[in-house]
Amino acid sequence: MPLSEQEQRLLEEMERNLYRNDADFVHAVGGVRGRRPNYRAIVLGVLVAVAGVGALIAGVALQLLIVGILGFALMFAGVLIAITPSKRGAATPAPAEPASSSSKARRSGGFMDRLNERWDRRQDGQG
């Protein structure tokens, strides 16, 4: 079910506030936009993992423990190569905030302040 226009605006405002107020958290969680998969690393990892499977099977067939262990290590390394994100992916900056909404947010005290005020009003009404 699609979001209404108001919900989309609120979501965009929450996202802008998150990028502005807690960029370290966004980076740690992996909320980096524009990162594309590194196909070269994926292909290399799959090839190494397949070579590891071959070495593992050869080690079992030849009853050579060291070849089996090396095959397992190759499989593990291949999977790590394939799933590890590349360092080359540059993070795109946070979306630009329109001038009208930034001045509105400053006048009203910000989105989180409004939420806190609403919460306090609800608690006062119940207590």
Rank of each mutant, 00 (worst) to 15 (best):
A73N: 05
V53G: 11
L80F: 08
I83T: 15
V48D: 03
V53I: 14
A91E: 08
V46H: 05
K87T: 01
P37C: 04
V48A: 13
A90N: 05
V48P: 01
L80T: 10
P93C: 00
V50C: 11
V43Y: 09
V53N: 07
A105V: 02
L62K: 11
V60M: 14
P98H: 11
L44D: 08
I66E: 08
L80H: 05
I81A: 08
A82W: 05
E97T: 15
L62P: 03
Q63E: 12
S108V: 03
V53S: 11
G68I: 06
S86D: 03
V46M: 14
K104A: 15
G110S: 07
A61Q: 11
G71H: 11
G30I: 09
V50P: 01
F72R: 01
A77V: 13
A61I: 06
A91C: 02
V32N: 03
E97A: 14
F111W: 07
E97I: 15
L65M: 08
A105G: 00
G68M: 06
A51P: 01
F76A: 15
G109K: 00
K104R: 13
G34V: 12
A49M: 14
G110Y: 04
Y39V: 09
A99Y: 06
V60S: 14
V46I: 15
L65V: 12
G89W: 02
G45I: 07
N38T: 05
R88V: 00
S86G: 06
R106V: 09
A28R: 14
G54N: 05
A90Q: 10
S86W: 02
A55I: 03
I66A: 13
A99D: 15
I66Q: 06
I81E: 06
R107F: 03
P85M: 02
I83F: 15
R33A: 13
A90W: 03
G59E: 12
A61E: 10
S108D: 02
S108M: 04
R33Q: 08
V53A: 15
A28P: 01
